[in-house]
Amino acid sequence: MRASLAPRRRLYNTGAKLLLWLSAGICCVLLLFVIGYICYRGLPGVSWELLTGQESILQGTAGIFPSLVNTLYVIIVSLAVALPLGAGAAIYLTEYAKSRRLVNAVEFAADILAGIPSILYALIGVILFCTALRLQKTLLAGSLTLAIMILPTILRTTQESLRTVPRSYREGSLGLGSGQWHMIRTVVLPSAADGIVTGCILAAGRVTGESAVLMYTAGLSTVMQDFSSIENIMKASGATLTAALYVYAKERADFAEAFAVATILLFLTILINFSAELAAKRLHKRKK
């Protein structure tokens, strides 16, 4: 059949095919180059000492343990705030809300939140949490700002997974006389759990990769913070991995360490993407 095509059509087909393969090729080459270059310059610098050590000018050692801890802090606190809000909102929208207008308004708001660039979140964090709520430049202020930023991610993924729970489950439970919340808690939420987990992993990924917000709201200190009491936890202020990368690359021109941190971030990204995919796969399996 191919042979019978007019020359012009054959040219069109070959051209189109070339275009598609070329575009996909460019994407792959780009990614492989970025990964390869980062590993090439960063892997030699990654060591157990770097991961678990603290930097010391007096002893001449480097270490990013404080930044790892700060990153973990920000992930935990921002999720602790955004998860109940986002999941709660999604539950209300799918299970309770009767007014289509309310659902539309909330979904529209979530879309707007998702579209706001992070530099604007940085400004908001500075005005709202650092200044108006007097949190100063702290990890707490940064985490709360990020909580707003990841709210739409959690809201949307929870909503998606709640929708996959069959109607019959709900009706069965309600028919047996349980209250609506009781039904949601015992029937809907357990079956939607992996969707919510996926949302959390995606949100954690966004938090790990975020830099602008944290640089302006959470501080840039790379020394170990004191997490021994609630008060100190609230006053702790420091750089997460991305912010530390920026500090090393831009403020200290220490590219060896910057690329080492970049390598670690790269592996974290791979890990997060992989687990998100795994969670999503489990979700799909259940759907079938």
Binding site: A80, L133, R134, K137, M234, K235, S237
Partner: peptide
Amino acid sequence: MKRLLMSCAVCILFLTACGSTADTAVVNT
């Protein structure tokens, strides 16, 4: 639900405790 409520409680705790500015052994420069 307990977990949900717990996390809510933690947030509220965080937010209310933020108002206090007692002397801690932190020097911000």
